[in-house]
């Protein structure tokens, strides 16, 4: 199963990078979101999958799934949420101020 999940994560990365290379701001943000999904799946897969019970201490169970990657992913989810929402508002402001959401046209000015 790990192999399947790794391939799925790799595919999410590929799709994310593909979106990142596009010109429209919204697409780029969709790309970052896909990449963070891929990364989370990655971290989870790199721990062990399905080896034991959910990591909540219960009487009589010896084997739990690895709790550390889960804690890491939880932190990461929250951070990528914060970044994604900031990016969204930034895209909204940028396209409103500059009148375009095309990255190729948002190149700074010639006077620098």
């Amino acid at each position: 199963m790990e192999l399947t999940m790794v391939i799925l994560a790799g595919f999410l990365f590929a799709a994310g990078v593909y979106n990142l290379l596009q010109k429209q701001l919204l697409r780029i943000i969709i790309g970052t979101a896909l990449i963070s999904h891929g990364a989370h799946l990655f971290i989870l897969t790199m721990g062990e999958l399905k080896h034991g019970a959910p990591p909540i201490l219960t009487e009589g169970i010896e084997q739990y799934t690895d709790p550390l990657p889960q804690a890491l992913i939880l932190t990461s989810i929250v951070i990528s949420f914060g970044v994604t929402s900031l990016l969204l508002v930034l895209a909204y402001r940028a396209s409103k101020l500059n009148g375009t959401d095309n990255m190729e046209q948002l190149r700074g000015n010639d006077y620098e």
């Binding site: 019970a53 959910p54 799934t65």
Partner: peptide
Amino acid sequence: YRAPDLALT
């Protein structure tokens, strides 16, 4: 994959 907190979040 038995990560209830993750799923919730």
